[in-house]
Write a protein that binds this DNA or RNA. Structure first.
Lengths: 182, 182, 182, 182
DNA sequence: CATGAATGAGTGTTCATTCAT
DNA sequence: AATGAATGAACACTCATTCAT
């Protein structure tokens, strides 16, 4: 079952949710077709299992954000959180993609993703508002903008073949930091 | 043929490239299966046609960026460019998504997307470098970060059901502006 | 489509509903797999179409019975009705079998069969009661018994390789006639 | 093994031979897949075991019939035999159904069922002939008709949710009795 | 004796693509 | 140009059967 979950992650990474066949997964896992259906009732079920696992591991992303330090975040705190976000992104990138792939078709999963996006960007907005971002910054908008930047930056860097490194996270942190502080 | 192109755009919007069937397209276009293959040799060909069309219309995004105003952009210039980006995004969002959907499988298209991303983020980086962003900002990184933010912000806002409005573009512009100027 | 319906009838005849594969049907119909799903959404749908067709053609069985001749049926009337029943049975035997095969699994179809059985045996009971069957005969029971005998007699005769002939229908009619008249 | 035989009976009752999976049987028996194949080499083998067991227990049905009382059966004798038939039917109904389910595919089993039907209906025909049924009754036909009625009547009553009771057996007996005696 | 995870051949179903009209 | 019925390869899923423990 672990073998299958790992194989699915790899398969989703290579081709995305829709283009991966159950056959791809079992080939990577070196099991039979039948075994797949022993553990998962279908391809969607497999994805849900993967998502549930990831959600458990990523839960601290909310927690850290949920408690804004009085007097505004300082750069180092922010940098640490960005680092945590980045490592989770790297770990779960294929999943994130598969998740959104299916979300656009499955209303149920769509609502789940919407919920997650709203919660995370809301937490960021709260932080930004607490920091007092000043003129020209709507905290609501900025929260989602930060989330958007982090997510897509990682994606684009992988896509062009230069995965995110520590130095680039410094720059991202500074951009966010400047957005938060007048 | 126009009917088919428009229908494809709508279909891709609803379900993404992989999940839309040729059937969906011809149903929306109210034509027959046969007619589809009269104009396009297959589903991928249809997407390429749409992409070519969009590329022509969006070419000014590069041009504007390609010519950094000496002494740095001012906020109003930046805001205008962001507005232009936004209107093109809204127009071509389904296509962008379909494009990346297929890019992850088709090496040829993948290279094309990679090229576009590199060019656009490079142009932004040049602007940022010219503006003299100061300590903590690597212009190369920041260029791609800005591109990432703009793209994904639009996507997320549509996704949660609150499409981008003018006010939110002001905040985005300010975030970028602050990232560029020490 | 007609080709497929006829092929299905033959296939159901040979092997029953559960044991016939979609493949059997399309092979007999000399069409492709795809064509099958052009007309029917699945194997069950095919059976339902066949049943609907048969129900239309057999509807007169109820009508004739629904109108008991005052003063009791005479033998000739009964004999004619038995003949009509027999010809319909011969025509639709494979269907009848497939229908009950699936009825035991599909609650919806099960209810439909139950309804049909109840209606037909009820109509027979009414006839028997009107004829005044006398001591030892409960019309309710006898109605269903007659239905049972007719149905299964045809089945058994086909099964042992001596299909029902006109002479045997005479005997059946006489058995029913004696059951109805004291 | 007994557990498995009983479980099979229940499973065949619920869904018929073709639709019951080995899985259903072992689930009801609360044993494992492996155990099933320890006792039976496959699903068909299981059915044959069940049939052999039933055949032993039902053998008296032939015996009783095989010995026509000189001067014709009287009603009470007939009623008793009908009762015996009924109790065996109730006990072995699922088996009877499974048996015919498979008989239509397996030529070997088909011959076996054909043999049984012929023997039983022949015995009944002999009785009817001995009783001197009179004009309009062909004893050969009537024997099979009686068998058909008994078998299917039980089935239909179970099917519509009103299992056979003693009173209904009286009516059946009378119908048969009238068929036998002019 | 008993288990139940693993297997893979078999079956149902979808959908891009063709072609006679 | 346009049609839409027909195709069949590709894919999802099931279930009887095996075998290491």
């Amino acid at each position: 079952m672990r073998k299958l979950l790992d194989a699915a992650m790899e398969a989703f990474d290579r081709r995305g949710y829709h283009a991966t066949r159950v056959n791809d997964v079992v080939e990577i896992a070196k099991t039979s077709h039948g075994t797949f259906y022993l553990y998962f009732s279908n391809k969607e079920d497999l994805l849900r299992a993967l998502v549930a696992e990831a959600a458990a591991e990523a839960s601290d992303l909310y927690d850290i954000l949920g408690d804004p330090s009085p007097g505004g975040s300082d750069w180092a705190d922010l940098r640490q959180w960005v680092g945590r976000y980045s490592s989770l992104w790297v770990r779960y990138a294929p999943l994130l993609r598969a998740w959104t792939d299916l979300a656009s078709i499955d209303p149920d999963l769509g609502a789940q993703v919407r919920q997650t996006v709203t919660t995370m960007s809301g937490a960021l907005s709260t932080q930004i508002a607490a920091a007092g971002a000043g003129d020209g910054i709507d905290a609501d908008v900025a929260g989602m903008a930060v989330l958007a930047m982090l997510d897509r930056f990682h994606y684009l860097r992988e896509f062009v073949g230069r995965p995110v490194d520590e130095a680039s996270l410094d720059t991202l942190t500074t951009i966010i930091y400047r957005a938060m502080s007048d």
